[in-house]
Structures are given as structure tokens and as C-alpha cells.
């Protein structure tokens, strides 16, 4: 057993891995926020609640319907995305032409409703969700023990992030999306159905949150409050990275997760606040955010 800077290597790499996992959630969630903000110009406050919904849908699939993890990984984002589409069509559309801050207030109200309903139904102590049998156990890498499931979460999140980047930056649909973000009126004049694009974008953004929720379910217990505090950290991540760049959001998310993991090893008292402290530093040095353009 060797040590690095007086910390056992096992503990250090274990925390780094956990940090990477948190980072992948930050990355997926801030990515969704950025995509939604780009087109709808609202900050989706219910993003954390929708992440929690993803975990709950997976749990319900398993316990009520007997649908396993792998199917839930596909199904839960679809369900959450469908509720998102309903929310956009029924609620957000009506306030689209008002001040953008109303979108924040509306989605804040939605977050309260979703969290409240789940808390009343399932309590706030949390429900267990088993790791799927294929991914139980782990591998001793010599310098650390790697549980298969944790490795899978990092790989899957990275894949989804890169796929999203590819979809937005390299495909025709993504080009429409970027065009509509830049100038919705002109894009519509070219015959592209922008309202439909807006609806699908919101659905896609919250489906990403639902996907992250399913990934999180076996690591953290399924809990109605799991998204509430997370979303505030993700807001700080978004402020640090800026919402202008997709790759920027991914890099910022993962690296802040790593920094948080390191803090847990070397100065655990600050691990809950380190991201906020970095946000303060970024605001002082580079107010527009690391990857943001000055407004």
C-alpha cells in the first residue's frame, strides 16, 4: 500500500472516481440546462426534480413492472422527456413571450410540486436500487479497487455527452437547432418548424436529466430530495463554465467533479462548498465564465 501526499492511494483514487461520477452528473445536467437555455431562454429550475424523476421511474419500473435496469435506462429518459414535452406545450409555451425570469419562477414552482408529490408518496428516507447483476463486483487495479458499476457510469455519461455534442454540432438537426438559437424568426422563415424544435429541445434536455437520474439510482439511494441540492451546485457549474459552449459544459462538469473529489480527500470540511468558492473566484477573475462570451 503506497501513499500520495500522506493519503493512502486507495482512498485518493476512490474519491477521485466518486468525483468523476459526480462530475459526469454535473456535465449531463449542465449540458441539458445549456441546451434548454440556448433555445428557450429559460433556466430550467425543475431540472433537479426531473433528474430525481428519472431515478424514480427506474425504481418503479423495477418494483411495479419488473422491468430491469437496462430497459429502464432507455425507458426512464423517454418517460421524463414525455412529461417535459407536456410541460413545454401546456405551460412554458404560454409564457414564452414574457420576461424570461417568469420561466425560472414557473419551473421553480414545478420543482416544488414534483418534489412534494414524490415526498408524500415515498417519504424522504430514500429507497434502495440494486446494481444490475451484470455490473456487480469490481476489479483490483493494483493502485485502487474499481467497482464495475462506477466505471460504467463514467463511460456511459461520457458517451452520452459526446453523442449530444455530435448531435448538436455535426448533424443537420443540430444545425437547425443552432440556427434557431441564433435567430428563431429567420429560421422559421426558412420553413423550419421552430415551435416543434423548441418542444423537442426541452423534452431532450429533461430526458438527459432523467438519464442521469437512472445512472445515479444504484449509487445514491432513490430519494425525493436527491435533485434539490444538486441543481444548485449545477447552477454554480453553469456560472463557472458559461452556457455558450457544449464541450465547455462537459469539461467544466467533469473537472469540477474531480476537484470536489480531491477536496474530500485533503480538506473534507470544504467539499460541500468548494464549487461555490471556485464560482466566486471565477466571477472575480473572469466574470463571463471560463467558456462564456461576454454579454
Amino acid at each position: 500500500m503506497f501513499e500520495i501526499l500522506g493519503v493512502p492511494a486507495q482512498a485518493l483514487f476512490g474519491q477521485l472516481l466518486l468525483g468523476l461520477i459526480n462530475g459526469s452528473f454535473y456535465a449531463i445536467l449542465s449540458l441539458g440546462l445549456a441546451v434548454i437555455f440556448g433555445l428557450l431562454n429559460i433556466i430550467n429550475f425543475s431540472h433537479g426534480a426531473q433528474y430525481m424523476m428519472g431515478a424514480f421511474v427506474a425504481w418503479m419500473c423495477l418494483n411495479y413492472l419488473g422491468i430491469n435496469y437496462w430497459a429502464a435506462l432507455l425507458l426512464a429518459p423517454l418517460v421524463v422527456g414525455a412529461t417535459g414535452i407536456a410541460i413545454e406545450r401546456l405551460l412554458l409555451k404560454r409564457i414564452a413571450h414574457f420576461d424570461h425570469l417568469y420561466g425560472l419562477l414557473l419551473t421553480f414552482g414545478l420543482a416544488l410540486i414534483i418534489q412534494g408529490v414524490f415526498r408524500n408518496q415515498y417519504g424522504s428516507s430514500g429507497l434502495p436500487y440494486q446494481i444490475p447483476p451484470e455490473l456487480r463486483g469490481g476489479q483490483n487495479l493494483g493502485f485502487m479497487f474499481l467497482p464495475y458499476y462506477r466505471g460504467w457510469v463514467v463511460v456511459a455519461s461520457l458517451a452520452v455527452c459526446l453523442a449530444t455534442w455530435f448531435l448538436i454540432e455535426k448533424t443537420k438537426l443540430g444545425a437547425y437547432l443552432r440556427a434557431a438559437t441564433e435567430n428563431p424568426t429567420l429560421t422559421q422563415a426558412f420553413g423550419i418548424n421552430v415551435p416543434l424544435l423548441v418542444t423537442l429541445t426541452y423534452g431532450f434536455g429533461v430526458a438527459l436529466a432523467g438519464f442521469a437520474g437512472v445512472l445515479a439510482a444504484p449509487i445514491y439511494s432513490v430519494n425525493p430530495n436527491m435533485g434539490a441540492d444538486l441543481i444548485i451546485v449545477v447552477f454554480a457549474v453553469v456560472v463557472i463554465g458559461g452556457m455558450g459552449s457544449i464541450l465547455g459544459a462537459i469539461i467544466t462538469g467533469f473537472s469540477l467533479g474531480l476537484i470536489e473529489g480531491l477536496t474530500k480527500v485533503f480538506y473534507p470540511e470544504a467539499s460541500a462548498t468548494v464549487i461555490f468558492i471556485i464560482m466566486v473566484l471565477v466571477l472575480l477573475v473572469r466574470p463571463a465564465g471560463l467558456f462564456g462570451r461576454a454579454a
Binding site: I95, L106, G109, L112, I113, G116, R119, N120
Partner: peptide
Amino acid sequence: WVLVVQGVIFVVCVL
């Protein structure tokens, strides 16, 4: 349920 009621008031007020 108070939270839910508050959330509903939020949504109704904004709409």
C-alpha cells in the same frame, strides 16, 4: 403537501 400547494400557486400566478 404545503410545498405542493405553494408550487401550484407559483405556477398559477406565473400563468
